[in-house]
């Protein structure tokens, strides 16, 4: 699939935003963060900015952005509509939680409930995003059991890495918060490695023979294409990345998205002051880069069944 910048930017940016929002909600409600105004303002504002910028970016790739509101009407059948509804709903408890934290400097009681609800809705929104991809049966690399857990865990992980930066900035370091960052990085790395392994081993059921209804008759190859230059289908779904390049990018993603952030985040537990701050900032920067590469591969390595009509023998 064509790795469109707007979609890569949307899923990574709002993924991190929802992850951070959930961290603020859970740790805030648990009383592990100072209920001091500036902490709440910076954390929630940053989270909601990431979410909003991501959502806006996702409307840029629409053919008719001015009609985007219509995208929420079919929540009964469409995961994309459900994602839109969830995204809007999440703002409500998040705003209430923000009101309590920033205005009243209170994160307990009903305000805490709003925090927990924001976290749950944030996670549900990310699950809806993942389900959009997971529900597409023509794309075997997405229509499998790894897609949804991987989206959710990587969102939580990106949020945790950001949370570490925030608590270090406000001098609110806490071994539980930092510990969770380390644990989510390790789990995210493991899960993504297994997911990549699955996609390497496994391919979809349809073949070129079943695509043209000539089963078991022999080896089918393209004699002539229907058109002389690339059409919409080939531009949108015929994207090919050379195995060599994909493997190189995967290594970059392993190292910058997971390995180095894991090392720096773990290191930050044993040092303090500016050194610890530098470590968590470095972990965040590297992790963001690695996750963008991971997301690029998620699209570029997805093989749509329409390629069977254009020369692919398996997808």
């Amino acid at each position: 699939m064509h790795p469109a910048f707007s979609v890569i930017f949307f899923t990574t940016c709002s993924g991190a935003g929802y992850g951070l929002l959930a961290m603020m909600g859970i740790w805030g409600a648990a009383g592990m963060l100072p209920s001091e105004r500036w902490m709440g303002l910076s954390g929630l504002l940053f989270a909601l900015t990431l979410v909003t910028v991501g959502l806006l970016a996702s409307t840029f790739h629409l053919g008719r952005p001015e009609r985007a509101w219509r995208a929420m009407t079919q929540w009964r059948s469409s995961w994309l509509a459900r994602e839109g509804v969830m995204a809007v709903l999440t703002y409500i408890p998040a705003a209430l939680f923000g009101l309590g934290w920033v205005w009243f400097e209170d994160t307990t009681g009903l305000w805490a409930v709003a925090g927990v609800v924001s976290a749950i809705l944030a996670w549900l929104t990310v699950i809806c995003t993942a389900k959009i991809y997971h529900s597409l049966r023509p794309i075997h690399q997405w229509h499998n059991d790894w897609t949804v857990p991987s989206y959710l865990l990587l969102s939580i992980m990106s949020g945790a890495v950001l949370m570490s930066v925030l608590v270090h900035l406000f001098g609110a370091e806490n071994p539980y918060i930092q510990g969770l960052t380390v644990v989510t990085l390790a789990l995210g790395w493991g899960l993504k490695t297994l997911y990549w392994g699955f996609n390497k081993r496994s391919s979809g059921l349809p073949t070129v023979n079943s695509a043209i209804g000539i089963d078991a008759a022999g080896d089918v190859s393209v004699l002539e294409l229907p058109h002389t230059s690339d059409n919409y289908l080939m531009k949108e779904m015929g994207y090919k990345v050379a195995q060599k390049h994909a493997d190189k990018l995967r290594t970059i993603s392993h190292v910058t998205g997971f390995a180095l952030p894991l090392v720096f985040s773990a290191l930050a537990m044993f040092i303090d002051g500016y050194a610890a701050l530098a470590a968590v900032v470095l972990a965040w920067g590297l992790c963001s880069l690695g996750i963008i590469v991971e997301r690029w591969l998620f699209f570029a390595e997805a093989k749509h069944t329409v390629n069977l009509y254009y020369g692919a023998t398996k997808v």
Binding site: M1, H61, L62, G63, R64, P65, R67, A68, R70, A71, S78, L80, I132, S135, L136, R137, P138, I139, P206, A211, N231, Y232, L233, E236, M237, H304, T305, V306, Y309
Partner: peptide
């Protein structure tokens, strides 16, 4: 009503939909 999100063309295994 179409917003041009292209998701339907991704969901069609047969490449029957083309974006204008």
């Amino acid at each position: 009503k179409c917003i041009g999100c292209k998701l339907c063309s991704w969901a069609c295994p047969y490449g029957a939909r083309e974006f204008d």
